[in-house]
């Protein structure tokens, strides 16, 4: 239940949200950024709906001692604004502006059986693996210097 069915059903709700919101459609996402052209402000309403529910929901949930299926709430603890955060986010935005897919929209788009989504997701996974290899070699070099 807590290992497979529950996360599957939550993923189903997430994917339905991406589909219903229109964010599964790269044309709609790219038009949000095209203020000077075929502007479609819908993405702002998606973020509005998602933030409203999450802002209120998290406040109720995080008052509880822990998650219903056990363990503890795993929340990021880092606070510092470092170079990887800013440079990485900048690179992500460039790729998002080129492709019109972000990770959360591209995964449900696989269920539409559109070849474009498969090309994007394959390239994105390659990018994650390349980044992981880069970080590993940077860490190894740093360890040698110390």
């Amino acid at each position: 239940m807590e290992r497979f069915l529950s996360p599957f059903l939550i993923g189903l709700i997430f994917g339905a949200g991406i589909a219903v919101s229109g964010m599964i459609n790269p044309a709609k996402v790219l038009n949000f950024f095209d203020v000077a052209g075929t502007w479609d402000p819908s993405l702002a309403f998606v973020m509005g709906g998602a933030l409203l529910v999450t802002f209120i929901g998290y406040r109720l949930v995080l008052k509880r001692p822990g998650p219903i299926f056990g363990g503890s709430f795993q929340l990021p603890t880092r606070k510092e604004i470092d170079r990887p955060l800013v440079v990485g986010s900048a690179i992500f935005g460039i790729g998002w502006g080129v492709a019109g897919f972000c990770p959360g929209a591209s995964i449900p788009a696989l269920g539409l059986f559109q070849p474009d989504a498969y090309v994007f997701v394959a390239a994105m996974i390659a990018g994650i693996l390349i980044a992981r290899a880069i970080r590993r070699s940077l860490d190894a070099r740093r360890a040698l210097q110390v």
Binding site: P26, M124, I130
Partner: peptide, 30 residues
Amino acid sequence: PDFSSPTPRVWLIPGGLLVGIGIFFGSGCT
């Protein structure tokens, strides 16, 4: 749902690579 991808398919490869690298170092996405 409606679906159309204005980006030429070959451009989805650099686009996807940049997204993958960016979200890894940036620790997250949308």
